[in-house]
Design a protein around this nucleic acid. Sequence first.
DNA 1: CATTAGTTCGCACGGTCGTGCTATCTAGCA
DNA 2: TGCTAGATAGCACGACCGTGCGAACTAATG
Lengths: 212, 212
Amino acid sequence: MSTTPDPDPPRRSDGERTHAAILDAAMAIASVEGLGSLTIGRLARELDISKSGVFAHFRSKQRLQQETVAAAGEVFEREVLAPGMQAPAGLGRVEGLCEAYLSYVDRGVFPGGCFFAQLIAEFDATDGPLHEAAAEGQSDWAGLLQTEIETAQSQGEIDAEVDADQLAFELDALLEMANFLATLHRDPDVTERARTAIRQRLATAAPASIRH
Amino acid sequence: MSTTPDPDPPRRSDGERTHAAILDAAMAIASVEGLGSLTIGRLARELDISKSGVFAHFRSKQRLQQETVAAAGEVFEREVLAPGMQAPAGLGRVEGLCEAYLSYVDRGVFPGGCFFAQLIAEFDATDGPLHEAAAEGQSDWAGLLQTEIETAQSQGEIDAEVDADQLAFELDALLEMANFLATLHRDPDVTERARTAIRQRLATAAPASIRH
DNA sequence: CATTAGTTCGCACGGTCGTGCTATCTAGCA
DNA sequence: TGCTAGATAGCACGACCGTGCGAACTAATG
């Protein structure tokens, strides 16, 4: 995983360093093959630790999965939300969030593409805590886009007639599709397709007074 | 799985009937939990057959997976391509294919949503025959949309300036997003969102001469 | 009736899974 | 120095995995 380097690495005990290393490997495996193919034995093999050594850090597979999702959430926050939210509230931030997501795909932050897109696809049709986690993550992200679209409307940057929820759906569709196709076809140009579509879509949503 | 009833059920030997029943169950499991959670023991349990009885029909797990994908391809052909292709070539068929896909999602043809969307998400980041199958399926579908868009352009139904590849990408994004969100949130209204977006997107692609 | 081909079963194998228990080692503190 | 808490290893367990083999049963063919 290639994340932006942490300028202030905290002092850690051996256990904490191992714990973090396990979660790093777990995120990488899960983003490529899904949480279902994440096994304790495999983590032990890849990290050259005994199975019990790995297990002791989580005491159940469920906890390992939970902590992996939480760790991925932190990565998403750092690599997408933080940079995206630096743009000024409103239209700029809508564009900033979209660009932050596409950049995160381009940079290959997770080797298998967006961790949460993978999570959604894997657990969309199941029940249980992982389904809830996936649904919640998706709702939060879509809700964030919607909120910023509404702010843009109140600032006169997007036409007030536009259905914010609908527009958020459409932008999200383009982002997720870019993630999947870039991964599937190993084609870095796909994100550019999404950029083009987003630019055009936002142009048609501009206030009627300044359109054309 | 709820498919349209076959008006002419072919005469089958016991073995053929069992074979088909196994593949039906396999498609259902795989669409919900992925091909990775498809196991011979589980099929045996659900169908009340011995493990060896299931295994004998395929002689390897790889073959079982291949045949499951092929069977899902036939379902997709029958439930999406055939109805969609009944529309007249060009813009009508673009709309027909989109509507056929959304209807296939609405009808819940596969209990876990579109089988191939699941396949793409599961194997987009891996290597091997299943990755190839997923990539090929996606390319064929997107290529079909693109071809019909180009036909529509040659018939003056879509502006000649439009990038057919780009438009196909955008329509596909809306369709796949509808599939994932309808499954994730168990919300049948999501497909209506996609219909709205597609209608609007195609309107902006209309020839300049008849726009506005 | 005897033979044969096809279908399914029971059983066994080696491997991996998640999980628990006990031992060993290492640091920091009294 | 001895004690304690934390980190890791070793080993065993029952369950399930894919796979192979031989036996039983069924239906069609001669």
